[in-house]
């Protein structure tokens, strides 16, 4: 990781463009989901309209810890993305993202509503499900590329997809959980609304909810970036990287639309058994 002014500037520029990219990707998500369900969806810029509307509302907060937690979540997403654009250390990124997710949980737990409490518990279970998988993915990448730095991973000779196919599947599972898509959309707003209203996001409204939305966009960009690392190498083109991002996202949306939501027990079982088995098999195969 070089600390020159040039790299810092590029990272800052990319960081400033990330909310826009994240918003557009969310807009495409909604439009594509709508087409799969045989209807027109909202305009592509609808997420921006939503966030702007939320920012314009009067804040209704229960206590000030909630607001602090929303800010911590946003800051952690920004810092993690910044480190990623600076081509820094993957493990560091992992822990910063974890801090953000825990902040979301704590923010939901400071409020005394049953939906928020239940949502917070489920979010913790979700973290229990996807964090081991994500660590395994990073470990596999590091093993294949030689170090945890993004710059080294981007410069491998042949794409990591060929040596880590099973880890790619594990990454898809992680993305399903993080992006809150069926069958794993059990804990938060817009998704598990049939059971716990908005889950973790129940007590947020107005500007604080806008902060959580923007943080989520940045996380989406980060996850797609990590997925892109499976195809970046010295021999592949930029177009190929874009293609893999697009295809992976399409598969995520497709899986969202063809399955019902499962319970958290099923999610733990699937991710820890199936996902971990896939990951471990791949890593052992790398070692031997």
């Amino acid at each position: 990781m070089e600390l020159s002014i040039f790299t810092i500037l590029i990272a800052l520029v990319l960081l400033l463009l990330s909310p826009l990219a994240g918003g557009f990707i969310t807009g495409v998500d909604r439009r594509l989901t709508a087409w799969l369900q045989s209807r027109y969806g909202p305009p592509l810029v609808q997420p921006f309209y939503d966030v702007l509307k939320l920012l314009g509302k009067a804040p209704m907060i229960v206590n000030s810890w909630q607001v602090l937690c929303a800010y911590i979540y946003l800051v952690s997403a920004v810092v993690a993305l910044f480190i990623f654009f600076m081509q820094g250390d993957l493990l560091l990124i992992f822990f910063v993202v974890t801090v953000g997710a825990v902040a979301q949980v704590v923010g939901a737990m400071t409020v005394n509503s049953p939906f928020g409490q239940t949502g917070a518990q489920r979010e913790l279970l979700q973290m229990l499900a996807y964090e081991p998988l994500l660590v395994m993915v990073f470990v596999g990448m590091a093993k294949a590329a030689g170090s945890f730095n993004v710059s080294d991973i981007m410069n491998v000779e042949e794409p990591l997809l060929f040596s880590l196919p099973l880890l790619f599947i594990a990454m898809v599972i992680v993305m399903l959980i993080k992006l809150r898509k069926s069958p794993f959309d059990i804990s938060s707003s817009g998704h598990a609304h049939q059971e716990i209203v908005s889950g973790v996001h129940t007590d947020y409204s107005g500007p604080q909810l806008a902060l959580l939305e923007i943080g989520h966009w940045l996380e989406v960009v980060l996850l797609l970036g990590i997925t892109a690392l499976f195809w970046t190498s010295q021999t592949t083109t930029f177009i190929g990287v874009i293609l893999i991002i697009v295809e992976t996202y399409f598969v995520e949306i497709l899986i969202d639309n063809i399955s019902a939501r499962m319970t958290w027990k099923w999610m733990l079982r699937t991710s820890l058994c199936t996902g971990m088995v896939l990951a471990l098999v791949n890593i052992f195969w790398l070692y031997y």
Partner: peptide, 16 residues
């Protein structure tokens, strides 16, 4: 019923 277990696309398919 499909919507209650989170299957939005089946919900819309029945309503179509």
């Amino acid at each position: 019923y499909a919507e209650s277990f989170g299957f939005e696309s089946l919900f819309l398919a029945f309503w179509k």
